[in-house]
Amino acid sequence: MSNWPAVLVASVGTYALKLLGILVPERVLNHPLVRRVALLMPVTLLAALVVLQTFSTGTRFVLDARAAGLAAALVAVICRAPFLVVVVAACVTSALVRLLT
C-alpha cells in the first residue's frame, strides 16, 4: 500500500504536464533551449530504458530471455512492423526461449 503516494503524485504530475501545454501561452515553452532539451529527453530516456530493462535486474547486469525478445523486437521495427507486432514478437520470443532452456 506504500506505493499509493508515488502512484498519485506521478499520475497528477503527468496529467499536469499534458494540461500545461494546452494552457500556457506558446512563447513560454518555446524557448530554443527548452525545445532542444524536450527533443533530446525522450530519445535519451527511451534508449536508456530499452537497454536497462533488457540487460539489468536491480543493480546487476543479467543476460536472459529478454535479450532474445529485444532482438525479435529490433527485427520487427526494422521491418516497419506495427507497434503491437513489435511487442508481441518480443513476448513470444522470450517466452519460447524460456520454454526451451
Binding site: 525522450p42 530519445v43 527511451l46 534508449a47 530504458l49 530499452v50 530493462q53 533488457t54 530471455a65 529478454r66 525478445g69 529485444l70 525479435a72 523486437a73 529490433l74 520487427a76 521495427v77 507497434f83 513489435v86 511487442v87 514478437a89 518480443a90 513476448c91 513470444v92 520470443t93 522470450s94 517466452a95 519460447l96 524460456r98
Partner: peptide
C-alpha cells in the same frame, strides 16, 4: 508469457 520483454520492446518501438 514473456511479459517482462514487453516494456523494452515498446520503448524500442517508440524510440
Amino acid at each position: 508469457l514473456g511479459m517482462d520483454a514487453a516494456a523494452p520492446a515498446a520503448f524500442l518501438a517508440l524510440l
